[in-house]
Every structure is written in C-alpha cells, then in structure tokens.
Amino acid sequence: MKLLKVSGSPHVHSDESTKKIMWRVNMALVPMLLVAIAFYGLNALLISAVSVGVCLLVQWLIEKFMLKTPTTICDGSAVVTGLLLAFNVPATAEMIWIVAIGALVAMGIGKMAFGGLGKNPFNPALVGRVFMLISFPVQMTTWPTVGKWFPMSLDTVSGATPLGIIKEGLTHEGATVQSVIAENGLPSLWEIFLGHMGGSLGEISALAILIGAIYLLCTKVISWHIPVSFIGSAFVFAGILWLVNPDQYIDPLTTILTGGIMLGACFMATDMVTSPMSKSAQLIFGCGCGLLTIIIRNWGSYPEGVSFAILLMNSVTPLLNRWCKPARFAK
C-alpha cells in the first residue's frame, strides 16, 4: 500500500497549465505562418525556423549553464517568442541572420536576464524587434513586394510598406494622402484585409490574425479587453485626426488594417506576462497602446509605432496592476 498523500485543499485542479496556454498561442499563430509562407515562400519559412531555433537554444543554454535549473523549453514560450519575433521582420534573405541576433537579444536580454518566463517586464519579441530596428534600420524597413504565390526567392523588387510610402510621400510639398495613394498604386482596403501588402511576416493578412485571435478568445487565453481597446482607441483617435484634416491623415480603417496594429493588439499586447491583469487595467493599457501608436505614426520619425507603444505601456503595467484593483466582493 502506497502512502496517502496530504496537502491543503483544493485537491483537484482545472488541468490548465502554462504549457497548454503557450501551445494554444502557437496554434493561433499557425494561420499567419501559413499566409507568410504562401506570400514570401522559403524566406518566411527559414526566418521563422531560425528565430524559433535560436530562441530555444538560448533558453536551453542559459537554463543549463547559467541558471542551472531544469530546462523549460518544452513549455512552448520560447516558440511563441521566436514566432512572434519572426512575424515582426521583413521576409528578405538577409533577415535570416539578422533575426538570429534579434532572437538572441529577445531571449537573452528580454527574457532570461530577468529570470525566465513570467519575470520579464517587457515583451521579449518586441525587445528583439526594437533592437533590430535600431541596429539594422535599413534592412528592417525594406520589404519585398508581394508578387506571385509561394516565390522561392525574393530578390526582385523591394520597397516600403504602405505606411512608409504614405509617410515618405507626405513630406513632399503639396502632397495629400489621396495623391500619394493614387501615385503609388497602393492596394485597396479589401486587399489589405485579405493580405496583399508589403510588410512583416505576420502583418500581411488581417484575416489570418483575426482567425488566430478568435481561437485565443474561444480558448480563453486572452480576453477581448486589450485587442478591442487597442484597435478601438487607434480607430477613434485616427478618425478624429482624419475628420480634422483628411489630406494629412490616413483614414481610420486603413490605419488599423495596415502595419502591425492587428498583430500587436491581438498577440503582442495581450502577452499575459507583460500586460495588466484586471479588466479595467487592461482597457487602460489597450487605449494607451492605441493612442501611442497613432502619435508615433503621425508625429514620430518612424512610420510604425506599435512596438514602441506596447513597450512603453509594458513599463506602466506594474503601476496599472497596483492602481486598478479588481472590484472587491465585500466592501
């Protein structure tokens, strides 16, 4: 007869585990990966593989030799970081080695330096991305244009994203948003939604992002609060600007469909570790991200501001957790 076990109550568990949550996020990223491979072919596959591989390796090495703790690479969190990092870079051939450096920074500095999963104050994938953006500004803002399905090489034409083109175009004397769009033959809203624009791996198709996000919502990995408040506040703020001056500001629908807002709102800002916990704090967090994104896009020097916006809001997460307590049952 084995010994009876003793512990405090409860004696049953919901079967929920960190591992399950992380692998669900990975599942949700699959549609985006498929779209990326469809549009960018081998490069997309290689970049994702390198990014995930380096993330796993860095985590394993640090845990084995520096922290001397049992390895946790099976929990899927390094895969999430690797995939998200890959989704944040353009699918050019040279990104394959650049993303390896980014992955090293993301895992090494962004996550493991703080003690591993759960302890990092900033989203590690964004730390990696911002590091690459600052270190390799040209490579990080040169996108291959989308051409035929599953191209094997992408050395043909390269250019900027719609956001970049508009931002650049507006600096010319007398240019308006409409004239820039017309001159450069930018894709229509519908094309952007389905996935026909230059951009990072994961930004191509808003539809694929939505499919992933709905899966996460259904499996209760994320709640609606951050994505909705992020996208909503960006939409409202951009809409106000557009109403004030439609010549200088992009219309709100294009705003939320282009660039990384969808990806950021559904997958980056909702990262459990770096986002606040109570619902009210999550709403504030999302709104902050949305507002900062639009501010950086319109008045900053970068055409895209999602990464910076989320990182900035990550830094106030502990404060939001402190201020926005859940409603107590018993006053």
Binding site: T18, M272, V273, M277, S278, P326, R328, A330
Partner: peptide, 17 residues
C-alpha cells in the same frame, strides 16, 4: 512553475481579491 501573471486566480476569486 513561474507565475505568468495570467490573472486566472484573480478572475476566479469569488471575493474579488
């Protein structure tokens, strides 16, 4: 394992703690 700050405990708490 490490707390991943998912907030599930907070959402499950019937006393709002």
């Amino acid at each position: 394992s490490n707390c991943i700050r998912c907030g599930k405990c907070m959402n499950a708490c019937p006393m709002g703690l």
